[in-house]
C-alpha cells in the first residue's frame, strides 16, 4: 500500500535540501538549526554528529571484548565425575554433537554467526558509504536494517548462562557456574548495539545521492 505518499509541493527531495530537519521519532519537521522537536522534545540533528567516529569507536570496543568472550569459559559445569568448562563455540558444538542439533544450530547462529556477521556488516556499511554508486543504497540500507534488528538477539547466550547458573544447584551431583566470558560477551553485544544505533541510516542514502551536499562540510 502506498496510501498518501508523496503528492505535496515540498515532497520529492530530502528534508536537508529543503532547509528542514525531521524528527526521527515523531516525524515533525522544523527549520534547520532548531535543536529540540516542538512536538516530542527529542533532540534534532539533520545528520548524527560525529556518526562515523562513534560507530567505529563502539565497533572497536565490541571487537576487543569479543576476543576474551571466546577465550574464557562461558560456563563451568561441575558433576560427580568431573569439572568441565566450555567456551561459547564449545558449548554450541556440544549441543550439536550430543544434544539437540536444532537448538545447537540456534545457539551457534546467535552467538557466533550473528556477532561475527554484525562486525562485518557494520564495517561493510561504513566503508561502502565512502563511495556509493547511485542506486546502491537499497541493498546497503537493507543490510543495516537486518543488523539493527538482529543484533540484540545475541544476548540469548548470556540469558542461557544466567538461568542455568541459577537453576542447576544439585549438591554434589551437578552445579553450573557462569564463566568470565559471559560478561565479555554481554559487553560485546551492548557495544555493537550502540555502534548500530550511532550509525545514521540517512548517511547511506546521502552517499548514493549525487545531489546530496553536506551544508556543514
Amino acid at each position: 500500500m502506498n496510501a498518501g505518499a508523496a503528492h505535496g509541493t515540498v515532497a520529492g527531495r530530502t528534508a536537508r535540501s529543503a532547509g528542514l530537519v525531521g524528527c526521527l521519532h515523531c516525524g515533525l519537521l522544523a527549520p534547520m538549526g532548531e535543536t529540540d522537536c516542538l512536538r516530542c522534545g527529542a533532540r534534532l540533528e539533520s545528520r548524527f554528529r560525529n556518526s562515523r567516529q562513534r560507530v567505529w569507536a563502539w565497533w572497536l570496543a565490541g571487537l576487543i571484548v569479543y576476543v576474551p568472550a571466546n577465550l574464557y569459559p562461558m560456563m563451568i559445569t561441575d558433576t560427580l565425575l568431573a569439572t568441565y568448562s566450555s567456551t561459547i563455540i564449545g558449548g554450541a558444538m556440544d549441543l550439536v554433537t550430543h544434544g539437540d542439533v536444532f537448538v545447537g544450530l540456534i545457539v551457534l547462529i546467535a552467538s557466533v554467526m550473528i556477532p561475527v556477521g554484525k562486525f562485518l556488516a557494520i564495517a561493510w556499511v561504513m566503508i561502502a558509504t565512502r563511495k556509493l554508486r547511485p542506486g546502491g543504497a537499497h541493498r546497503l540500507h537493507r543490510m543495516y536494517e537486518v543488523v539493527e534488528f538482529i543484533g540484540r538477539w545475541s544476548m540469548i547466550d548470556v540469558f542461557v548462562v544466567a538461568i542455568l547458573a541459577a537453576l542447576v544447584h544439585l549438591g554434589s551431583v551437578a552445579g553450573i557456574f557462569p564463566g568470565l566470558a559471559a560478561i565479555c560477551f554481554g559487553a560485546s553485544v551492548i557495544f555493537t548495539m550502540l555502534a548500530a544505533l550511532s550509525l545514521d541510516p540517512r548517511m547511506i542514502w546521502d552517499a548514493a545521492d549525487p545531489n546530496a551536499q553536506d551544508p556543514s562540510a
Binding site: A11, C23, L29
Partner: peptide
C-alpha cells in the same frame, strides 16, 4: 509533512486511513 527517519525524504502525508500504511517512496 513527514521526513523519512531512515533516508530523510520528504513526504506530504495527510490523514492516512486506519488500517492502511504510508511508506517512504
Amino acid at each position: 509533512l513527514i521526513a523519512c527517519p531512515q533516508c530523510d525524504w520528504l513526504h506530504d502525508v495527510g490523514d492516512v486511513p486506519t488500517g492502511t500504511r504510508a511508506r517512504c517512496v
